[in-house]
Simulated scan of single mutants.
Amino acid sequence: MSQHRTTVVDVFTATALTGNPVAVVHDAQGLSDAQMAAYARWTNLSETTFLLPPTDPKADYRLRIFTPERELPFAGHPTLGSCHAWLAAGGQPKGEVVVQECGVGLVRVRRDGARLAFAAPPLKRSGDIDAETLAKVARALCIEPQAIRAAAWVDNGPGWLAVMLGSRDEVLALAPDFEAMKPLEVGVVAPWPAEGVNGERCAFEVRAFVPSLGIPEDPVTGSLNAGLAQWLVGSGRAPSSYVASQGTAMGRAGRVHVDRDGEDLWIGGDCVRCIEGTLTL
């Protein structure tokens, strides 16, 4: 058996228990793929991550990311939560930004006070969605096809496609058929009312449905918001800086901060450590 420091970090929130938690295993070298997968199934969180020494000399660490069903090449909230845990454990970046090595390559993470933000990786698939797939999405979301105002592939690794509805209320009212949705990973977005909600103003409400990964709904999703930002900002549907709300339908209060800086879109959020301990496998 081996022992490993482990941290559970709540991501995209400054208030514990209102974001999306990720379990981070430090110094995970020596653990087998089977052990990593088994631990991810056991935690039953959206993602569980494993920090390893980098294989690329430009990287500060290597990250492996597992859902309860399979390994992912990239995911957003695990990137921020794992970086937060690595820094808190004494990690020292080689340059001004932290460089994470993962399945999609090198991902930059910058610090802005207590907030972390990753540079949105290039989309692996973008553009229009074919009519047959879009019809399947409408059926899976249990909505009429005309309720979808716009749609696009926004895949940066997990396989995301996105649809836009007309209002925040429409997004929050969704009750999908998850079996009908498989194997698609579907993000849904709609604008907030201009007057805000309960004194707060966000630009968009987001929900993420990923039943094929063993996660019917993900509370707050960095990779989806990264893909959405590239689509929405690039098509003029969103300003270059905005805040998205996600998790409302699950009793969470995630806030995703999007900022364009030159050619980069940075996807940021606050992180809170909730659990520190030792994992024995």
Rank of each mutant, 00 (worst) to 15 (best):
Val220Ile: 06
Ala38Trp: 02
His84Thr: 10
Glu185His: 13
Leu184Ala: 11
Gly268Arg: 00
Val107Phe: 07
Gly214Thr: 14
Trp153Met: 11
Leu161Lys: 08
Arg125Ser: 08
Trp160Ala: 04
Glu101Ala: 07
Ala38Phe: 00
Arg149Asn: 03
Ala75Gln: 00
Arg110Asp: 12
Ala34Asp: 15
Leu279Glu: 00
Leu31Arg: 09
Asp261Gln: 14
His257Cys: 10
Arg252Leu: 08
Glu263Gln: 14
Cys274Gln: 12
Arg108Asp: 14
Gln246Ala: 10
Met250Tyr: 08
Ala238Arg: 14
Trp86Glu: 06
Gly157Thr: 06
Thr48Cys: 02
Phe178Glu: 11
Gln230Leu: 10
Pro68Trp: 11
Val104Arg: 04
Thr18Cys: 01
Ala208Met: 15
Arg273Tyr: 01
Ala238Lys: 05
Ala75Lys: 07
Leu174Ile: 07
Arg168Ile: 09
Val220Thr: 07
Ile275Asp: 07
Glu132Met: 13
Leu123Tyr: 12
Ala131Arg: 12
Ala135Thr: 11
Thr6Asp: 00
Leu279Pro: 14
Ala190Phe: 06
Val256Phe: 05
Asn198Cys: 00
Ser167Leu: 07
Ala37Asp: 04
Ala38Arg: 05
Thr6Trp: 02
Gly76Pro: 06
Gly113Val: 09
Ala208Asn: 14
Trp231Ser: 01
Gly234His: 09
Ala14Thr: 11
Ala75Arg: 02
Val233Glu: 04
Pro78Glu: 00
Gly199Trp: 04
Ala85Gly: 09
Pro122Gln: 11
Gly19Gln: 01
Tyr242Met: 06
Ala34Phe: 00
Asp259Ala: 08
Tyr242Asn: 05
Asp169Ser: 14
Met250Leu: 15
Trp231Met: 01
Asp177Arg: 12
Leu63Ile: 02
Leu106Glu: 14
Gly30Val: 07
Ala190Gly: 08
Leu265Arg: 04
Asn198Arg: 13
Glu200Tyr: 00
Ala75Met: 07
Ala28Phe: 02
Asp264Cys: 13
Ala253Met: 12
Leu45Asp: 03
Leu17Ser: 03
Pro68Val: 02
